[in-house]
């Protein structure tokens, strides 16, 4: 029997597979399709202090090997998430969930995290300082080590839950941002968020997305994500949640060899709603194929001797 379990800040996960925020809602749509308790956990839809509609349509465009999105953090707001989504989630998901939080000011991050800190269901806070699709916030905090550290310190001061800072790939040196988060007290880092990108419609001669730019995700970004996880693993000693274009059990193992302690799966969920269930199912067989007895033992394996 191979061991698929991993640990994130003292909380054991049956396996490292975590649907990524923004591709899994608050779980309900997928719980209708399969028992989502087979997952390690899931990172719920990016939640802000106030309700948000997000950006105008079109918000989605296709790319070779992936897609662009410019949803813009549509969510019902933290109060409604706590009043409605979390109680509903208790009906179909019985593991600690990862709460993904976004904001437009340090004060907003703090208030949203403080509210979610009281929720027993929440195992970890994943603090998004890297959304490329909102203006005047989001990615701005993830763009400099100083700003990333400031958000980390402020959030850590109001929660006892493990805090994972979700980092942007749209920076010169992601390792420097990761180090700043670690020094400011982050329990871990999540990477990568989407890559800032654009498509232009030849018929209209204008950007395909109403927002102009969007975030690139899908298999096209996987090698970029592996490289960044590898670099950040060399720079920090806190756990890394790796993501970016992961769509198979093989990808999960590759990401863990680069240095990830757990792995998020994003765009793949939108194409195959059963993607995460299938990856969880396939993991033991793929581990056996490559002579892996325990996933925990392979974390960062690509770095050693």
């Amino acid at each position: 029997m191979v061991d698929t379990s991993v640990t994130l800040s003292g909380i054991r996960l049956d396996n490292p597979v975590i649907p990524a925020s923004g591709t899994f809602g608050y779980g309900a749509e997928f719980a209708e399709l399969y028992d989502i308790n087979c997952l390690g956990t899931f990172s719920f839809k990016g939640t802000t202090q106030e309700p948000r509609f997000g950006n105008p349509a079109p918000r989605i465009a296709e790319t070779p090997g992936g897609m662009l999105n410019a949803v813009g953090l549509q969510n019902p707001g933290v109060e409604k998430v706590i009043a409605e989504e979390l109680p509903r989630m208790r009906g179909f998901f019985h593991k600690p969930v990862m709460a993904n939080v976004s904001g437009f000011s340090i004060g907003e991050y703090v208030r949203t995290c403080a509210l979610l800190d009281r929720e027993e269901q929440v195992g970890w806070l994943e603090v998004n300082i890297s959304c490329p699709n909102v203006h005047g916030g989001g990615m701005a905090f993830g763009s400099s080590p100083e700003a990333a550290a400031a958000v980390t310190r402020a959030v850590k001061a109001v929660t006892g839950k493990p805090v994972y800072m979700k980092l942007s790939p749209n920076v010169t040196d992601i390792a420097a941002v990761a180090r700043a988060c670690e020094e400011a007290g982050a329990d871990g880092v999540s990477l990568i968020n989407t890559l800032l990108a654009m498509r232009i419609d030849l018929k209209t001669k204008k950007p395909l997305l109403a927002n102009g730019t969007g975030g690139l995700s899908g298999p096209a970004v996987f090698p970029v994500a592996v490289r960044m996880v590898y670099q950040v693993y060399e720079a920090v000693s806190i756990p890394i949640i790796g993501m970016g274009g992961v769509s198979s059990a093989e990808d999960v193992i590759e990401m863990m060899l680069a240095g990830a302690s757990a792995v998020e799966v994003g765009a793949a969920n939108l194409v195959n709603p059963f993607a995460c269930r299938d990856i969880v199912r396939d993991l033991p067989g793929v581990m056996e194929k490559y002579g892996i007895n325990s996933l925990t033992e392979i974390i960062g394996g690509a770095h050693h001797g």
Partner: peptide, 17 residues
């Protein structure tokens, strides 16, 4: 009609007011 990501309510790609 709207451009969609998933088609089953997960991605919020085709939201309208």
């Amino acid at each position: 009609e709207e451009r969609m990501g998933c088609g089953f309510g997960a991605c919020m790609g085709c939201s309208c007011r």
